[in-house]
Design a protein around this nucleic acid. Structure first.
Length: 852
RNA sequence: GCCCGGGUAGACAAACUGGCAAAGUCCGCGCGCUUAAAACGCGCUGCCCCUUCGGGGGCGUUGCGGGUUCGAAUCCCGCCCCGGGCACCA
């Protein structure tokens, strides 16, 4: 059952024997789908050559269409079906629009679920994962997704993670990967540290357990080095959903302000703080440190508060992230018995420790301005500390003390020589003054934290680092990569990585001095694997280098990326960071990985998120069995705009099945009752009307697919066309020109529907045109058939519809008015009233405004 | 609390630029085909009235309240509800 990724999977191994479609009397999706899938496989239809290879076609522009790679666990679900249906429609559309499209597939195969399964069942994560991969691959083939299978990869394969490790070493070389002790989020259930991004509401993203804080030596990637560039380079993107950009912006969290140094003379130390409000410095009446601040102990030592401080710090350490973040909770804290000097006025203010100050942000210390900050105000009230207003709002209410805390703008008071100035004006002056005194400077702070990448888990790429007693930390030499994941007996973590138990593997030789060395036993976060996979697709069998530079530069950036909005921050930002770092190391031309991003909405059932426990899942495999892949894919794209979610309905899917059957029957009938290659010249009446409808559909579908991703209305337009053919066909067959129009309209319908229902459309197109629809250029709407000779003029009186008149398209404004006025019903409404105004919008309407 | 989406018929939706509200699909109803049913084809599907049965007329309507405009689902102001993101970030 397991299979090697990249060994060109064969459909013949996974599908049943075909039937001959021609012999069936009704639409048989399975026979048709099987037939075309075998054709695509036999002819390697979707394989695309790289520059430098003999098959490379340099005449076409390139397009890299990519859906987020799946995490293989069990079988694919409806979300996967949606992602790949949407992506495949785009891939097909672009191919037929003349692009050379690369559309690969792979698996994000390392990760916790497979490992948790291993802990429970003893089954090797590789076994479970590869079983799942086989199932995903089979489904993708049955869905008929147009994938270049020669580029298939799995991130758990040594041939892949060798290069994950290689990139790690490059980052290490550049100082972008580093190891240090840090307070980290620890999940006591999974027994591992988590990235900030994997903590949701203080709980482990995977298992929901409350997260604890621990101080541990960990590996980090310095994504913070790129904080500003990650913001600036949004400008380089072509089209990203605005909400995703906003979410990333908020996550990066840039704040401008000042760093101001407060001095504690008692112990002769400087305490810098970051503030966005240097204009309120004169209002600072106390000073607060985070409980984790490294100098807290030293400050309290020897004071009467020593024990109380120690207790408070310990208590804070025990509290969960969630408890501390609860805003409803009363502010807590303890005095330190020390003072610092406010640099603007020389005032000595008391120091406190309080857990509302976060060590992770800024310097872990703040100046507290209770008059102008909500949190400081609450703390001052709770501890009865002085509150001094330094800004007065213009609103008289705000000038009084009831208006506190006041965070708006206004006139400075109690601020020495800045009194009377507007606070915005004083803002920069205060910073300049502090800078000249060497007590502060302008500063920018980011909310973004460095990316914690080490995991004390088995099923991941080993971190390629050694520890030698003599030489210290030593990177594994490139020619010794990959560092293979060893086989182990026991997957359950016990506070250290399961790899630590593989003694033979851990103990090794130092490549520098030849002495004894131990391997790093942590593995990498799986987000590392998925931060560069799109580059490996481009050159997947290269074992000399990570990717050929020419090849990667040719295909990158990804022209269209498609996936769930749940990856708006994590995956998308990590991948952006990787590409920037790789660019700066001169390994890649691109600065951004995803030029265009499309995020799809989630499919629910009975209005709720699908889940096994709720028992409301939709199994794609089951429905493919019932209706065929074309029906499912088309239905998914039809249920609503793909950007939005939608609620699954069996009746809806049946409706699409009926529609495809109707199209199939139409195809059969038209193939029988009209001749191939007939001329449509001089079509008139219904024949011409049908041609006009077909061209209308071409125009509509084309515009709906490309910039808009409005697949639902594109499919509706094809339905309208099919309905129109049914209405008119019986009156047209007898005349050769009319019959040719019917044939043209029908083959146009299947040609337009092909991106959504590729198998059926290939079949019907072959009957009608004897060609392969995917080899045909996308149809173009003829302008002369889009223009109408006449249109329905809407006539309103006081904005109310009173008549509709068919008028010639070239009728003048005066002509329109005259025709409108002559309408019987309009006259009835105009009768005896004075026309105050006449509005004429040629091509649309005439509106008479009357009085009385 | 802050920042984004969204609210249209019985359901999902369409209306891209301020111009006929509701295309298309589902559900429901009727007719045809059929011994019958399914399937299929055709039609109806906001309310009221007239009809010679071809159709015609009136009214209402896009979460609620106001405004701008000849004209608003669409723009502006206020509010209600639903979904998502962030949240002691100094």
């Amino acid at each position: 059952m397991t299979s090697e990724v990249g060994a060109q999977p064969k459909l013949a191994a996974v599908a049943a024997e075909p039937q001959t479609p021609e012999t069936t009397e009704r639409y048989d999706p399975h026979a048709i789908e099987r037939k075309w899938q075998l054709v695509w496989e036999a002819e390697s239809t979707w394989v695309v050559a790289n520059p430098g290879s003999p098959e490379f076609d340099e005449s076409k522009p390139k397009s890299y269409v990519l859906e987020m790679l799946p995490y293989p666990s069990g079988e694919p679900h409806v979300g996967h079906l949606k992602t790949y249906s949407v992506g495949d429609a785009i891939a097909h559309f672009r191919r037929r629009r003349g692009f050379s499209v690369v559309h690969p597939m792979g698996y994000d195969a390392f990760g916790l679920p497979a490992e948790n399964n291993a802990i429970n069942t003893g089954e090797h994560p590789r076994e479970a994962t590869e079983k799942s991969i086989a199932s995903f691959r089979e489904q993708f083939m049955r869905w008929g997704i147009s994938i270049d299978w020669t580029r298939e990869i799995g991130t758990h394969e040594p041939a892949y993670y060798r290069w994950t490790q290689w990139i790690f070493l490059k980052l290490f070389e550049k100082g972008l990967a580093h190891r240090h002790e840090a307070p980290v989020q620890w999940c006591p259930k999974d027994q591992t540290v988590l990235a900030n991004e994997q903590v949701i509401d203080g709980r482990c993203e995977r298992c929901g357990t409350l997260v604890e804080q621990r101080n541990l030596e960990q590996w980090f990637f310095r994504i913070t080095e790129y904080a500003q560039q990650l913001l600036d380079d949004f400008d380089l993107l072509e089209s990203w959903p605005e909400n995703v950009v906003t979410m990333q912006r908020n996550w990066i969290g840039r704040s401008e302000g000042a760093e101001v140094v407060f001095r504690c003379e008692d112990i002769d130390l400087d305490f810098p703080v970051f503030t966005t409000r240097p204009d309120t410095l004169f209002g600072a009446t106390f000073f607060v440190l985070a409980p984790e601040h490294p100098l807290v102990e030293r400050l309290a030592a020897g004071t009467e508060h020593e024990q109380a401080v120690r207790d408070y710090v310990n208590e804070s350490a025990r509290a969960t992230v969630e408890e501390r973040a609860d805003e409803e909770r009363q502010k807590t804290g303890v005095p330190l018995g020390r003072e610092v000097v406010n640099p603007v006025n020389g005032e000595r203010i008391s120091m406190f420790v309080a857990d509302y100050v976060l060590m992770e942000y800024g310097t872990g210390a703040i100046m507290a301005v209770p008059a102008h900050d909500e949190r400081d105000y609450e703390f001052a009230k709770a501890f009865d500390l002085p509150i001094r207003r330094v800004i007065e709002g213009t609103d008289p209410e705000q000038a009084k003390d009831e208006g506190l805390p006041y965070s708006g703008d206004g006139t400075m008071v109690n601020s020495g020589r800045f009194d009377g100035k507007h606070n915005r004006e004083a803002y920069d002056e205060i910073i300049d003054w502090l800078a000249s005194e060497d007590r502060g400077k302008q500063a920018v702070n980011f909310r973004l934290r460095d990316w914690l990448v080490s995991r004390q888990r088995y099923w991941g790429a080993p971190i390629p680092i050694l520890y030698c007693d003599e030489c210290g930390m030593v990177p594994v030499p490139e020619d010794q990569l990959p560092v293979l994941l060893p086989e182990i007996e026991e997957y359950a973590p016990k506070g250290r990585s399961p790899l630590a138990a593989a003694e033979d593997w851990v103990n090794t030789e130092c490549p520098k001095c030849g002495g004894k060395a131990r391997r790093e036993t942590d593995t990498m976060d799986t987000f590392v694997d998925s931060s560069w996979y799109f580059l490996r697709y481009l050159d997947p069998r290269n074992d000399e280098e990570c990717w050929g530079r020419d090849v990667a530069d040719y295909w990158m950036p990804i022209d269209q990326y498609i996936g769930g909005v749940e990856h708006a921050i994590l995956h998308l930002m990590y991948a952006r960071f990787f590409v920037k770092a790789l660019h700066d190391m001169n390994l890649l031309e691109a600065r951004e990985p995803f030029a265009n991003l499309f995020t799809q909405g989630m499919i629910t059932r009975d209005g709720a998120k699908m889940s096994k426990s709720r028992g409301n899942t939709v199994s794609p495999a089951e429905y493919v069995e019932r209706f065929g892949a074309d029906t499912l894919r088309t239905y998914i794209c039809f249920m609503g705009p793909p950007i939005k979610g939608g609620d699954w309905s069996d009746e809806g899917a049946e409706g699409i099945f009926r529609f495809l059957s109707r199209l199939w029957r139409l195809g059969r009938e038209v193939a029988e009752r009209s001749a191939e290659g007939g001329s449509m010249d001089g079509a008139s009446g219904d024949g011409r009307a049908l041609l006009a409808k077909a061209h209308w559909a071409i125009d509509k579908v084309t515009r709906d697919i490309d910039p808009r991703f409005q697949f639902n209305t594109a499919i509706s337009a094809v339905m309208e066309l099919v309905n129109e053919i049914y209405r008119l066909k019986d009156g047209l067959y007898d005349d050769p020109v009319g019959a040719a129009a019917v044939r043209f309209a029908t083959s146009t319908a299947v040609s337009l529907l092909f991106p959504f229902a590729p198998h059926l459309c290939s079949e019907v197109y072959e009957w009608l045109e004897g060609e392969r629809v995917w080899e045909q250029p996308w149809p173009e709407a003829a302008p002369q058939l889009l223009e109408r000779d006449t249109y329905m003029l809407v006539v309103q009186v006081n904005g109310k519809l009173r008549d509709r008149i068919e008028v010639g398209s070239d009728t003048s404004q005066e002509g329109l008015l005259e025709l409108a006025r002559s309408s019987e019903n309009v006259q009835r409404h105009l009768d005896g009233k004075a026309v105050a105004k006449e509005i004429v919008v040629p091509g649309r309407l005439v509106n008479f405004v009357v009085k009385g």
